[in-house]
């Protein structure tokens, strides 16, 4: 199995603050769904990494969630694409599972799991620099046009999509009156991409 040395586990304070906010403001259903969705997402990544024998460098828990780091320098692009895609793919499987269980058990909390898992999956597939989608795009572009072009193109596409997410977030906030999560994600992405 994958080596997990103690020094490779990084916890940042933002992570616990995020958890505290979640615990305070969300129902147990939603907390459970979020935790499970993120965990499944990362397990998806890990599974792919294990399959390709890619060594994991560290696992970081920060305010942007859980992140698994590996050395991408010697990993073939196709493998990177597979690893990046397996996260959202795992989320899709989870959503499917949640849907099936909901149909059988008629339990509303599985709708929440379905929704959050799908949201995590789709959000990560967006072609923005630090998300899985961005990584996939970068790898595909690097395959055809080389990494330098891929970098430049990715930045531009990222910014375009961030603007789109920003407007979606504003719309969601306006329509719901209180849901600023998408807006917050857009702002955070803006900050991270411009750093």
């Amino acid at each position: 199995m994958i080596l997990m040395k103690k020094k490779n586990l990084i916890f940042k304070p933002g992570f616990f603050l995020l958890l505290a906010v979640m615990v305070f403001f969300l129902d147990y259903d939603a907390i459970f769904a979020t935790v499970i969705s993120v965990a499944v997402h990362e397990i998806g990544h890990l599974t792919a990494m294990e399959f390709f024998h890619i060594k994991m460098k560290n696992i970081a828990f920060s305010c942007s969630g859980m992140n698994i780091g590996y050395d991408g320098k010697y990993t073939p692009y196709l493998q990177e694409i597979a690893v990046a895609f397996s996260g959202p793919a795992a989320n899709m499987f989870l959503s499917l599972l949640a849907l099936i269980i909901f149909k059988k058990a008629e339990d509303e909390s599985f709708i929440i799991l379905l929704a959050i898992s799908t949201a995590v999956g789709i959000f990560n597939l967006l072609p923005v620099k630090y998300l899985d989608g961005g990584k996939i795009l970068h790898c595909i572009l690097s395959l055809f046009f080389g990494p330098r072009f891929a970098d430049a193109f990715l930045i531009i596409i990222s910014k375009i999509f961030i603007v789109l997410i920003l407007f979606s977030g504003l719309y969601l906030f306006y329509m719901s009156g209180y849901n600023f999560t998408l807006l917050l994600s857009a702002v955070w992405l803006l900050y991270v991409v411009n750093r």
């Binding site: 940042k12 304070p13 933002g14 616990f16 505290a20 615990v23 305070f24």
Partner: peptide, 20 residues
């Protein structure tokens, strides 16, 4: 400082969970 920050944030999280 980082240890303190981390400890503080863990405390906040535990408090939030307890209150919940």
């Amino acid at each position: 400082r980082s240890a303190v920050k981390l400890a503080l944030s863990i405390c906040i999280f535990l408090m939030a969970s307890l209150m919940k």
